[in-house]
Simulated scan of single mutants.
Amino acid sequence: MKILTKGNYYGTQRSELSFNGIVVSKYHYTEPQTAWHYHENPYFMYVLQGNMIDGNARTKTLCPIGSLMYNNWQEVHYGVKESKEASGFHLEFERDWLKQKGIDHHVLEGSQLIEDPQIHVLFGKLYSELMFPDPDNEISVELLVLQICDRLSHRKEMETTGTPGWISSLKELLHYDSNDLTLQYLSDQLQVHPVHISRAVPKYLSSSLGEYMRQQRLKKAIPFLLDPNFSLTEVAYIAGFYDQSHFHRVFKEYFRMTPSMYRKRILKNGIC
Rank of each mutant, 00 (worst) to 15 (best):
3 I>S: 00
230 F>V: 04
29 Y>F: 15
230 F>L: 07
156 K>V: 06
44 F>D: 03
272 C>H: 11
71 N>Y: 01
94 E>M: 12
72 N>D: 12
49 Q>K: 15
30 T>H: 04
246 H>N: 15
163 T>S: 14
118 Q>I: 02
265 R>V: 12
19 F>R: 13
102 G>T: 08
62 L>Q: 10
62 L>N: 12
25 S>A: 15
1 M>L: 13
12 T>A: 11
158 M>F: 05
168 S>I: 12
159 E>A: 14
183 L>D: 02
9 Y>Q: 13
45 M>L: 14
197 I>N: 00
71 N>H: 09
257 M>K: 15
92 E>C: 04
199 R>G: 00
56 N>G: 04
199 R>Q: 06
49 Q>A: 01
148 I>G: 04
189 Q>T: 01
2 K>F: 04
133 P>V: 02
135 P>M: 10
246 H>W: 05
52 M>S: 07
29 Y>I: 14
76 V>T: 09
119 I>S: 03
49 Q>S: 11
231 S>F: 10
101 K>D: 00
254 Y>M: 13
263 R>N: 05
251 F>I: 11
130 L>P: 04
241 F>P: 02
45 M>A: 15
103 I>N: 04
70 Y>Q: 07
30 T>F: 02
133 P>H: 04
119 I>N: 04
60 K>L: 13
183 L>P: 02
114 I>M: 09
137 N>T: 09
266 I>M: 13
262 Y>C: 06
239 A>E: 07
156 K>F: 08
252 K>V: 00
208 S>A: 05
177 D>N: 13
80 V>S: 09
71 N>T: 13
259 P>G: 08
218 L>C: 07
252 K>L: 06
190 L>M: 06
227 D>T: 01
238 I>G: 00
267 L>M: 12
221 A>S: 12
114 I>V: 15
251 F>R: 06
227 D>G: 03
96 D>V: 10
29 Y>V: 10
178 S>R: 15
54 D>K: 08
80 V>E: 15
178 S>Q: 13
174 L>C: 09
99 K>L: 14
57 A>D: 07
77 H>T: 10
164 P>W: 08
197 I>W: 00
26 K>G: 01
239 A>C: 07
34 T>E: 04
79 G>K: 08
73 W>V: 03
256 R>A: 13
224 F>M: 11
45 M>G: 14
223 P>W: 11
78 Y>R: 15
80 V>P: 00
17 L>K: 03
96 D>M: 07
120 H>V: 00
267 L>T: 03
155 R>V: 11
95 R>M: 10
178 S>W: 05
261 M>H: 11
199 R>F: 01
173 L>T: 00
78 Y>L: 15
177 D>A: 13
68 L>P: 04
29 Y>S: 10
268 K>T: 11
196 H>N: 02
251 F>G: 08
12 T>F: 08
31 E>W: 03
218 L>Q: 03
147 Q>T: 05
33 Q>I: 14
169 S>N: 14
110 G>W: 05
253 E>K: 14
182 T>V: 02
188 D>T: 13
210 G>F: 05
248 H>T: 09
127 Y>S: 01
209 L>Q: 01
139 I>A: 09
117 P>S: 08
174 L>S: 05
